[in-house]
Design a protein around this nucleic acid. Structure first.
Length: 288
DNA sequence: ACTCAGGTATTAC
DNA sequence: GTAATACCTGAG
């Protein structure tokens, strides 16, 4: 396929590091020139910032412009969101200053489900490694610039993979979760297409929680980071627990702070932008 | 050798 | 309902 290119100028709220290292995605890697290259859907894209320009280039299945605009959520007014959240308190203001270039990507639902199942009780380098090996082994090969890239495998491409094969890729105890969830989705025991159409977040969440290996935290990550795009959810992991305790609860032992307590504060303070607030706080607490 | 990392499922009060 | 516990793996 032919390489395509798309350039935008003077785009606000767009920093490569903030977008790719804020914890929402696993398949974007920094290059020697500080650009990032990643695979999503059937696309291999490299993004670089030069002055006031952002340059996207690579192999794109469809027209690159709408593909990029959708995936990078370019039609949403992050400046407005940030200014609203900044009014809440100084903590939010600081965290937003730190992560001012964050954008929440529109990632494929299926890929997001599997990726965050793999993320459970795991560390980032290992999560990334597992996902790469999965893609290399079962995904579709795409050549670009003399290098090979691999799409994330579809449910169909994982249909006949055994638990043992997952284990050999380093999935660990998540092998059975992947196996069961893939089966449930292939059998439409949980119907992803139906889920995409459903506007009721509570119902969608219930559906996600039925999947093997999907608990409350993973479900919320899927709701926030996939094309489901629910900004009102508030995924609570160790970092969010830490930062919420530091800032608002101040219990001497953060591990003793209940989820309910955190959720209550999140809803009160951040309302229907809780997911975004969570992302700024998470990134700030973990990286700053 | 031992701890820890983007939690979940299971079991037991 | 809510609390304790095991769980692959590999890096530090």
């Amino acid at each position: 396929m032919e390489e395509q290119q798309y350039i935008i100028e003077n785009q606000n709220s767009f920093e490569l590091r903030d977008i790719f290292d804020c914890g929402q995605c696993f398949r974007w890697n920094i290059q020697e020139d500080n650009s990032y290259t990643g695979v999503f859907d059937k696309n291999v894209i490299n993004v670089n910032k030069e002055g006031n320009k952002i340059i996207f280039k690579g192999i794109c299945e469809k027209d690159i412009k709408p593909t990029i605009e959708f995936y990078f959520d370019l039609n949403r007014d992050y400046e407005k969101i940030k200014s609203e959240l900044s009014k809440i308190d100084d903590n939010m203001k600081k965290s937003i200053e730190y992560g001012k270039g964050i954008r929440i990507l529109n990632q494929d639902l299926w890929e997001t489900i599997i990726s965050f199942i793999i993320s459970a009780n795991n560390n980032i380098p290992r999560i990334k490694g597992i996902i790469e090996r999965l893609s290399e082994k079962y995904g579709e090969k795409i050549e670009w610039n003399g290098k090979y890239y691999y799409t994330f495998p579809t449910p169909e491409q994982l249909r006949n993979v055994t638990v043992q094969e997952y284990r050999s890729l380093g999935l660990g105890f998540r092998d059975i979760r992947l196996y069961e969830t893939t089966k449930m989705i292939l059998d439409k025991e949980v119907d992803l297409e139906q889920m995409k159409k459903n506007k009721n977040t509570v119902e969608v969440r219930e559906q996600l929680l039925r999947l093997s290996g999907v608990g409350p935290k993973v479900a919320d990550c899927i709701l926030l980071f996939s094309t489901l795009k629910r900004f009102e959810v508030f995924p609570i992991d160790v970092w969010v627990r830490r930062v919420m305790n530091d800032l608002y609860i101040k219990n001497e032992d953060e591990t003793k702070v209940s989820k309910k307590q955190i959720e209550k504060i999140a809803v009160e303070k951040f309302g229907n932008l809780a997911g975004l607030a969570q992302q700024y706080l998470f990134y700030w607490r973990r990286e700053a």
